[in-house]
């Protein structure tokens, strides 16, 4: 079976979630939602998936503040988020471009990221666009800090960064990204040319493994039908199934 770039990224993201007991995904984020559902399907142990904005993938009965309270208690152990700018220390900017508060471009704002990034054990950063516009040496505004002073209580933080070109790991002690693998068809030169921060790389950088046919089958069947409930347009575009075909969990 041939795999399209979005299915490939769903498979790559899901690998970074394995072993979690409870994955949370923000709203307006169909690819990461699909990745969480795939990881749950592939997991040998029970893995709960909370998709904010969904009806069937939300387990809270005490209102939307329960997500935050549960996160602070360690009841959610993996999270995925993107960012308008991400720098080499894994600081994430969701506020805008320019000197705050006189921004030249304003984005939506912090949401819950300053909190969730610190408290949920691992966060997988995901941004498809791999350019120097996004991956900067220093973000213009720190919505969510990649690292803290050692005396700050911080059980969580960045564990990986996935883009359309490659996969990075993150060393929390040193506060640096480390290239893990480059996606098929791309080169180290290309990654360097399009990244505005310094990062470490092994002597021989592996090629990111392509999800196998079994995984691809799960993406197109179980994942597609579940994600269609929350993101019907995305499911229609990628898998050709709409809301009506959605499986209600």
């Amino acid at each position: 079976m041939s795999i399209n770039p979005q299915e490939f990224l769903i498979g790559v993201l899901a690998r970074k979630l394995m072993g979690a007991r409870h994955v949370a995904v923000g709203s307006a984020s169909p690819l990461t939602g699909a990745a969480a559902l795939l990881a749950s399907e592939l997991s040998d142990t029970p893995m709960r998936v909370t998709i904010l904005g969904s009806k069937s993938h939300v387990f809270f009965t005490e209102g939307s503040r329960e997500l935050f309270d549960a996160s602070a208690q360690g009841r959610i152990d993996a999270f995925m988020m993107g960012g308008g700018q991400i720098d080499g220390q894994a600081n994430v900017n969701l506020m805008g471009i320019g000197p705050y508060p006189k921004l030249s471009v304003r984005w939506a704002g912090n949401y819950g990221t300053p909190y969730l990034y610190s408290l949920i054990k691992r966060t997988v950063l995901f941004r498809e666009e791999h350019t120097r516009r996004v991956f900067v040496s220093k973000v213009d505004y720190v919505s969510a800090a990649g690292v803290n002073e050692p005396n700050v209580f911080r059980p969580g933080g960045p564990s990986a960064l996935i883009t359309s070109l490659c996969t990075f790991g993150f060393d929390r002690k040193r506060g640096r990204f480390m290239l893990e693998s480059i996606h098929p068809g791309h080169t180290l030169e290309e990654v360097k040319d399009n990244t505005g921060f310094d990062f470490d790389a092994p002597e021989h950088v592996p090629v990111t493994a392509i999800p196998d046919n079994r995984v691809l089958g799960i993406i197109r069947d179980a994942v597609a039908s579940q994600i269609a409930e929350t993101y019907p347009q995305f499911a229609e575009r990628l898998f050709g199934i709409g809301r009506r075909a959605a499986r209600t969990a």
Binding site: A72, M95, Y117, S118, Y141, V142, A144, A145, R154
Partner: peptide
Amino acid sequence: PLRGILGSDVVSY
């Protein structure tokens, strides 16, 4: 009091 958030520019502003 609440945990997290420290290190974000939201705290300084």
